[in-house]
Design a binder for these strands. Structure first.
Lengths: 143, 143
DNA sequence: TTTACTGCAAACAATTTGCACTGCA
DNA sequence: TGCAGTGCAAATTGTTTGCAGTAAA
């Protein structure tokens, strides 16, 4: 689950690599689910490392730029990010209980076609995020 | 397109109706598409009416509570709202050219069902946004 | 040596809230 | 009349930015 060294090295693409950025990529890669900037900063702090909040924001933005991280939605007004390894076109299911994230297939054709003909738009991209409870959290809630 | 009197009366459900709220519901109902709080406030101002910004926020929240308005996404960090047909699921198309937004019906079940059975999640909410070019921008781009 | 990255604090923008006041029901 | 709704301004909150110092390349 933890990101490998090769991944970390490539996380920032052609941009400059620093100790802070390595920490950022490493911790983000080990988060295991969707996380906010605050979650990430807290996790970094747990490792006894201090990073300026602005550095975290800028680092995450850079990781998003290279595609290493993906913005997958929002929670309580904060942006949610995740390292998603699923290849190809897909969307995300985010567990509102534990932040766990799963990839979901995209029923693109069934949505886009009708939408285009109904509105005259030419659809070039889209974003679909589903929120819910993963099996564990769902069963925990039933107790 | 303009909301009828009956609609306005029911917009706030059992909550108290005031002159400000009537204005709010009337203007929101006449917006024709998605709008931000700011758009709405500006439109109200055009009618030579003054409403406190907090009143607009609280009024929109109330309209959302009753289902009369729906939060449909965000633009430049501001929440986007729209008056949508009650009950029906739908998604939105955002024009990357001019920012114009259109709503279209959406067969949500076709996304949620398969996603739930594939992952074991219980889906409780969703965010769907399509990006593309509206007819005007699409033809402008061809020139 | 160049200049991108960092940290801090101040700046920002959207939204919320406290409080006294007003006016529906 | 009572209490929900209003208006203002101050407070919050997530995020961005200016700037001087530090360190990759």
């Amino acid at each position: 689950m933890t990101a490998r060294v090769r991944d970390i090295r490539q996380a920032f693409g052609a941009e400059r690599m620093t100790a802070q950025r390595e920490t950022l990529a490493r911790v983000a890669g080990a988060m295991g689910g969707a996380f906010t900037i605050d979650d990430l900063a807290a996790e970094v702090r747990k490792r006894e490392i201090t990073l300026g909040l602005a550095t975290v924001y800028r680092g995450v933005a850079a990781l998003e730029r290279t595609g290493w991280l993906e913005r997958v939605g929002e929670r309580d007004g904060s942006a949610l990010f995740a390292r998603c390894r699923a290849g190809g076109h897909h969307h995300h299911l985010i567990c509102t209980g534990c932040g766990r994230i799963e990839a979901a297939d995209c029923p693109l054709e069934e949505i886009v076609g009708p939408a285009e003909s109904a509105t005259g738009f030419v659809v070039t991209g889209h974003e679909i995020t589903l929120y819910g409870l993963c099996p564990d959290c769902a069963s925990a809630q039933r107790d």
